[in-house]
Amino acid sequence: MLAPNRIVPPRGIGVGDVPVWTFLAPAAFAAMAAALLPGRGAALAYGLALCGLLGGLGAAATLLTGVNPAGRLGPAAGSWVAIGALLLAMRLAMGRAGSGTAARAIAALLLVAALWAMLVLGLIDDLGLVREAAARGPELRAALSGHLALVAAALLPALAIGAALGALSFAAPRAAPMTMGILAALQVIPAIALFALLIEPLAALGRAMPLLREAGLRGIGGAPAVIGVFLYLLLPVAAATRAALGSAPAAAVDAARGLGFAPAQLLLRVRLPLGAPVFLGGLRTASVQAVGLVTLGALVGAGGFGVLMFQGLGQFAPDLILLGALPVAALALVLDAALRAVEDGLVRA
């Protein structure tokens, strides 16, 4: 999709309109050859095809917008489908090869290194998304630090309080339905509505207690976003804690009691070690949920990548929307992969 600037609606550009087969032909050949190769060889071929496709888009952008610094060329629906299909094909090929966590991590790092090399060599500098990122470097860095800070500020307290509520539900089964029911009811409230409902109480609290207002507890800003996301994260953390404590086999629990373990020893030496993989599964869910929900905090002035996304929506700028959305997706995938690796390691241990 080509536009003379970020404001004018783009128009479609076909593959035949620009001579970029120098990049696209090898990409197409690599994608077809991957079907004949074994697992890891196929994954490598799909990776090369992806780099060739991006190189072709970069070459087309240079040809069509190189003389116009304000010009924007970005992938249309077909290109995004091809990029997604190649990434999915790489993952499936790694799965067929029986690649473990370490191999998948190495493959992801190689792909990131290839994309970085293309940036360094200037092969994709003229793509609209890359131009937008270069023009908004300081904003992008501020959004990254702000997003991570908001995620940590909501996730860490949710881990402590959610784990305590989950342990209480496990230790006192009669209280579990009420506790878990209240936490589940919070999930029914739409995120935007919850953030909005927190504005007035926090503003009143800030007016009544100036010290809290100076510390950042205001009706708008990071406070309603952090508190709202924190409330949403309590259920997955509490449910995971409760399930983890109850996942120890009854035979192991009975054997520990027969050896004279005190309740604290039973918790620390039996229930927690055996239930750790289950808890990490819930932590993965909560972490990914936090990364996504913090995006909506931009609507109440919290910052993060949501600022870029909503600016793009207001200006009808797809590149700006992607500049906010793609890092959020990348952060979620990195967190999920890291926690999955830890979970797999505990299961194997």
Rank of each mutant, 00 (worst) to 15 (best):
P201K: 14
D319Y: 00
P327R: 13
S247L: 13
G41F: 01
R284K: 15
G71R: 01
A171I: 03
L140M: 11
D344G: 10
D336S: 06
V278Y: 11
L36T: 09
G71T: 02
L212G: 00
P9I: 10
I161S: 10
G55S: 05
A158P: 15
D254H: 12
A286T: 08
P19H: 01
L268I: 05
A45P: 06
A142V: 03
F170A: 12
V288K: 05
R141P: 00
L274Q: 12
L183K: 11
P75R: 12
L37A: 15
A175N: 00
A191H: 11
V291G: 03
L63H: 15
V342T: 09
P190N: 11
A256W: 14
I13E: 06
G58N: 10
A30Y: 00
V237Q: 14
L88S: 15
L272V: 15
R271T: 06
L293G: 00
L333V: 07
D319V: 00
G228H: 03
G260N: 02
L274S: 06
F170S: 07
A325Q: 10
M309K: 02
A338C: 11
L140D: 03
L37D: 05
P277T: 15
L331M: 12
A286K: 11
L299P: 04
I321V: 14
I182N: 03
D319A: 04
